[in-house]
């Protein structure tokens, strides 16, 4: 019982930790009524898939059935909805004069980053000695993604990319950057992004970083993984720009510019995500040898 309350408070805390920047972003409030309902539902669906995937991959109560996983994910979204509602009320963004559709739109958009935070709080931010019984199952949360394959890692990369890019995508800056950038500047941004993310994951010796050894899968090689994670980041960027109406009536050249500029941010999230699930396979291999 006390445990549950503590879990809930940690979940709300984690949600706010990640969600606060976007709770304070004007474009997020405005897009609640600028975006059509179905687009917001699509975004919520994507967020839900990311939350389910993250819970499945991360080392949080690992011995779970699919039903338990889904229930946990619904709870994550529910807690996020409550946190987003309270925050919007306290910030005066939802009041008596706000229409129902506008209010629901704000809650729906704002609960997405909050849900990512709640999801992180459930796994990565939990203190390992939180519950003696859980501790063993949880293991040393960071860097404990045992069983995370190349695809699982790419999925986490996508989640991280979404989380980071979501902070930038609703604002006007990507549009401005993409439209104003010369073609050669964009061509420079791509290798710069690749080099930085490659170095972060495979060279800089962050916790959860990995060595340059290649694994068995073709995607388990530093170069291919960096490229694949970049491709995922490009896709996530395009999805977000489309979702926030930044591609409507915009020329192909400007869309490409925006995607590349936003993907630089998204790639950082993808790298951070991969650091979070860490070098499980390498570690396992090293332990095995």
């Amino acid at each position: 019982m006390r445990e549950t309350v503590r879990d809930l408070i940690r979940a709300a805390g984690g949600g706010l930790l990640i969600g606060l920047p976007l709770l304070y972003t004007m474009e997020m409030w405005d897009h609640s009524f600028l975006l059509p309902s179905w687009k917001i539902v699509v975004l919520l669906g994507v967020a839900f898939v990311v939350v389910v995937g993250f819970s499945a991959v991360s080392g949080f109560r690992r011995e779970r059935s699919w039903a338990e996983l889904l229930i946990d994910s619904v709870e994550t979204m529910g807690i996020a909805a409550v946190v987003a509602t309270v925050a919007m009320l306290l910030l005066g963004r939802i009041g008596l004069e706000t229409s129902l559709r506008d209010a629901v739109g704000k809650i729906a958009l704002e609960m997405i980053p909050v849900a990512f935070g709640v999801s992180l709080a459930g796994s990565q931010l939990a203190s390992p000695d939180d519950d003696p019984e859980d501790a063993e199952a949880q293991g040393s949360s960071v860097g404990d993604g045992a069983g995370v394959g190349a695809f699982g890692r790419l999925f986490i990369a996508g989640g991280g990319a979404l989380l980071f890019a979501l902070n930038i995508a609703p604002t006007e800056e990507p549009l401005l950057l993409g439209v104003e950038a010369e073609w050669w500047l964009l061509l420079l941004v791509i290798p710069a992004t690749l080099a930085v993310t490659f170095a972060i994951v495979f060279y800089a010796d962050f916790r959860g970083g990995r060595s340059l050894d290649a694994g068995d899968s073709p995607l388990d090689h530093p170069l291919t993984e960096t490229l694949a994670a970049y491709a995922v980041s490009l896709l996530v960027s395009l999805l977000l720009l489309w979702a926030f109406g930044r591609t409507d009536g915009v020329g192909v050249r400007a869309i490409i510019g925006q995607v590349i500029m936003l993907a630089a941010v998204a790639s950082f999230g993808a790298a951070a995500g991969r650091l979070l699930v860490g070098g499980s396979q390498q570690q396992q291999q090293q332990e095995a040898t």
Binding site: T4, L8, P36, V74, G78, I79, A81, V82, G105, A108
Partner: peptide, 21 residues
């Protein structure tokens, strides 16, 4: 209670948006 509130919140948000759409 958490589960109940969560289900209501999620169904409420998605339901309202879908109906509106």
């Amino acid at each position: 209670a958490t589960l109940a509130v969560s289900v209501v919140a999620v169904v409420g948000v998605i339901g309202a948006l879908t109906l509106d759409g």
